Simulated scan of single mutants.
Amino acid sequence: MQNVESKVFIITGASSGIGEETAKVLAKNGAKVVLSARRESRLKDVAATIGKNATYLKSDVADADSMKEIVALAKSKFGKVDAVFANAGIMPGSRMSELKVGDWMGMIDINIKGVLNTISSVLPEFIAQKSGHIVVNSSIAGTKCVPGNAIYCGTKHFVRAMLDSFRTESVMEGTNIRTTLIYPGAIRTELLNTIAPSDTKTIVEEFYRNVALKPDAIANAVLYAVSQPQNVDVSDLVVRSINEQ
Rank of each mutant, 00 (worst) to 15 (best):
I112R: 00
S66E: 05
A217G: 05
I127L: 15
S227M: 08
A221L: 07
P124Y: 05
S66L: 02
A72D: 11
S76T: 15
V25T: 13
Y224H: 11
T175Y: 02
R160K: 14
L116A: 09
T194C: 10
E20K: 15
N111L: 06
S121L: 01
V4T: 12
C153P: 07
S235L: 07
K52H: 09
A83E: 00
V171L: 14
K214C: 06
Q2M: 12
T180W: 01
Q245W: 09
M172W: 02
A23C: 03
I187W: 02
S241P: 03
G185C: 03
K113H: 14
G102E: 11
M96P: 03
S59C: 05
I70L: 08
I195P: 02
T180P: 09
L192F: 10
E173S: 07
I134F: 00
V122K: 00
N149A: 14
M107T: 05
V146E: 12
A186F: 04
L99M: 12
T168G: 09
S165R: 05
E205D: 15
K80G: 12
K214F: 12
A14S: 10
D233E: 14
A47D: 01
V25G: 10
I203N: 13
L191T: 09
T179W: 02
S6N: 15
A219F: 10
L57M: 13
L26P: 04
T179G: 07
Y224C: 04
D63E: 13
K24G: 01
T168H: 13
Q129W: 04
L181Q: 05
I203R: 12
A86S: 13
S198C: 04
S76P: 10
D236A: 09
S94W: 07
A88L: 04
D236K: 13
Y183W: 00
K156R: 12
S139P: 06
I110L: 06
P184M: 00
E190N: 13
G13P: 06
A74T: 14
I90R: 06
I140L: 14
N137L: 11
D65P: 03
S94Y: 12
V34A: 08
L191P: 02
A217P: 05
G89E: 11
I140F: 14
N3G: 08
V46A: 11
F158L: 05
K201V: 01
E244R: 05
T118P: 06
T168I: 09
I90E: 06
A161K: 08
A150V: 15
S235F: 03
S170V: 13
P215V: 03
L35D: 02
K52P: 01
T22Q: 03
L73F: 09
V84Y: 00
G142L: 00
V46E: 08
